[in-house]
Simulated assay, not measured.
Amino acid sequence: MLKPPVIVDAYNEIGYDAMNVGDRDLAGGLEFLEDLEKKAKFPFLSANLTDAAGKPLFTPSIVREVGGYEIGIFGLMTKTFDPARHGMPELRVGDPVEAAKRVVADLAKKSDMIVALCDLTPPEVEAVIEAAPQIRIVIGGHTGTFMNEPEQQGETFIVQAGSRGKYLGVIDLTIADDTFVFTNPNRSEELKREKGRLEKRIEFYAKKAKRDGVDDPFVYYAKNERIRTILDRAKARLAEIERELKAEVPKTGNIFAYQMKPIAKKIADNARIRERIDRYDEAVRKLQLAAGKNHPATPSTRKAPIRPLRLPGKVPLPKKGIPPIAHRPKGTLPGKPAPAGGETKPGGGTPMPPPPPQGE
C-alpha cells in the first residue's frame, strides 16, 4: 500500500481542511486507515461509520473559519457498503439520513453554513438533502460523476469533480447577506441546455416509433420497460424544468459559482509533491523487479525478431527478379525450366518418369 501515503502527503501540501472516508478508503483495512490519518494534517470525517457499539470511528464533523464565516463540514458513507462482506464485521455503516439529521442539528448551532461531503449514491444524496435542507452545498463522490454544472435541490447545490484527480472543482461564493441562500446566475441557461438534451432524447425514440407508423413513443415502447423508464424520467424532469423556469428567482445578493478545471500539463507541478511521486514510482519499479515483472532477463519482456506479416492468399513480393513460387512450375528451381517429359513430385524435387502408354 504505497500509494495512499503519497496521496495524503500531497493533500497535506495542498492544505486540505478535511477528507471524507469512503468505502474504497477501507480497502487496506481500518487499522491501515487509522495509521494513515496520523500522517495527515487534516481530520478524516465520517458521521455514520461506527464500531459494533455505535461509537464513531472518525470525527463526525468540524467547523472551519473561512473568510470570517464559520463553515460546518461533515462526512457520510454510503449504506450500500457492507463491511462484513469485506472482512470487517466489527464495523457498521449507519443510515446516512439519520446521521445527517443528527449532525446538521448540531452544526446549525455553531456554524453559519453547512457543507456535506457525501460518498453516497444519488438517491441517498436526495434523501439526505430532503431530511436536512439546511445543507447548502453537497460535495459528492462515490460515483465519480463529471459535473460541469451544479445540480440544485431546493436551496442546496450539488457538485462533483469526476474521479482520479483529473479535474479540480472550484466553488466561488459571494456572500452579501446572512441568509446564506445562494443564487446561481447561470441556472436558467443550464436548465435550458438540460431541457434541450432531454427533448432530443425523446425525439430520438419518437423517430424510431414513427418509422413503424406510431406517433406516440410512449405508446410504442409501452412494453419495453427499460426505454419506457427512460422516457418517463425524461418527461418528469422536463416538467420540473418548466416549473423552475417559470418560478420567480429569489432576489438575493448571495451568488454561487462553480467551475471544473482540468489538471493539465500546462499547470506547473508542485516540486515537493513531484519529488514524492517520483520516489513512489521508483519504489514500485523496484518491487516489480523483485517480483520478476518487467525484468530485462525474463522471457516475457525479451524482444523477439519482428517477422513480416503475410496475409492469407497474398503472394509475397519477388526478390531480385525471382518470380514468386506461385508463378513457377512445381519442382523447378529459380531460373531453371521445368524438366521435359515428366511431372514433378508434389512440392518439388526429382522429376517423376512419364506414365506408360495405355495398353502396354
Rank of each mutant, 00 (worst) to 15 (best):
D269V: 02
K286R: 12
N270A: 12
T252V: 12
E244L: 02
A268D: 13
R233M: 12
I255P: 08
M260C: 02
A257E: 14
T298E: 14
V284D: 03
D269Q: 06
L309R: 12
R272N: 13
E240Q: 12
L287M: 15
D281P: 01
K266D: 14
Q288I: 02
A297R: 14
Q259N: 07
M260H: 01
A271C: 00
K286G: 03
N270V: 11
M260S: 05
L231M: 00
V284C: 06
Y258Q: 05
A290H: 01
K293D: 08
P250G: 04
D281T: 08
A264H: 04
E244K: 01
R285P: 04
L238H: 09
K265W: 05
V249E: 05
P308I: 02
E244Y: 02
R237Y: 00
R307D: 08
A234W: 00
E248L: 10
R276S: 15
A236Q: 14
S300C: 13
Q288T: 03
S300P: 02
L289R: 14
A268R: 11
D278R: 10
N294G: 13
M260Q: 05
A271F: 00
V284I: 09
A264C: 03
A271H: 01
A268Y: 02
Q288D: 14
R243G: 10
L245S: 02
R279E: 14
D281V: 12
I277F: 10
A283T: 14
I263Y: 13
P262G: 08
A257R: 13
T252Q: 13
A236G: 13
A264F: 03
R274M: 11
N294Y: 12
D281H: 11
L238K: 10
I267C: 04
R274Y: 07
H295G: 10
N254K: 08
D281G: 06
A297S: 15
K286H: 04
K246D: 11
I255G: 09
S300A: 15
E248S: 13
L231R: 00
E242A: 15
R279Y: 05
P305S: 04
A283E: 14
